[in-house]
Design a protein around this nucleic acid. Structure first.
Lengths: 112, 112
DNA sequence: ATTCGTTATATTTGTAAAAACATAACGAAA
DNA sequence: TTTCGTTATGTTTTTACAAATATAACGAAT
């Protein structure tokens, strides 16, 4: 067969994106790095892009996904809320389930 | 809830895309229009882009997906092969199944 | 009060993808 | 043999998006 099926999923609210793969990756990087700027560096994206993504997520979420602090020792930082962590986990699980589902669907096709 | 989950799926072979939503849409338009140029017009894309897409599909498919004829009465035309039709149907079905599956997955999430 | 690495934001520059434009080749039919 | 609307392809222009650059504001700790 040798064909592969791929997918991209995302969750929207009123034509604003809440979560997608990039956003989830960013939230994970924030969690492990403790700041948005370090998270951006770790993903090789500009701080600005990271900030825009995070801002967009926080705006379309029902509750805050991160707590951002500015100034102070170390300059500040950002950390995931419990809600944010739960969202990340939920998204990842749906995504994995989707992959499994699609692989199974593809294997039924005899034409390829 | 009011959140919606969306997806994009595609089938690849050795990092070339065989089918995706745009390609399938194009194949359908070829089938209903009888020519690539008319199909492109109906989709509001340039002929060149349509040709490149179709070429890519035919190159990564095991068997021809369209039969293209150049010259002659009416200038020529393009039509789907039986194999092409079968691929389109298979893709559409997987896609619909995926939508159903994802909606069902989303409905399990209580956080949203 | 100075320092520091952040968050937050605006502005400019660069780049890759898309669109637009142009044109050759084709071949059945009149 | 001329005509026609195609397929097939190259070239240029435009546009959208990402990247780069710059800078203000912040506030706990020293």
């Amino acid at each position: 067969m040798s064909y592969k099926i791929k997918s991209r999923i995302w969750i929207e609210s009123e034509n604003n994106v809440l979560l997608g793969e990039g956003r989830v990756q960013l939230l994970k990087a924030i969690h492990t790095n403790g700041s948005l700027s370090k998270a951006a560096k770790s993903l090789n994206i500009s701080y600005k892009k990271a900030w825009q993504l995070l801002d967009s997520v926080n705006k379309s979420a029902k509750k805050p996904v991160t707590i951002n602090s500015v100034g102070g020792k170390g300059g500040g930082g950002a950390q995931l809320t419990a809600y944010g962590k739960a969202l990340v986990e939920a998204f990842d699980e749906i995504n994995k389930n989707c992959w499994r589902f699609l692989d199974e669907q593809l294997s039924r096709i005899e034409l390829l």
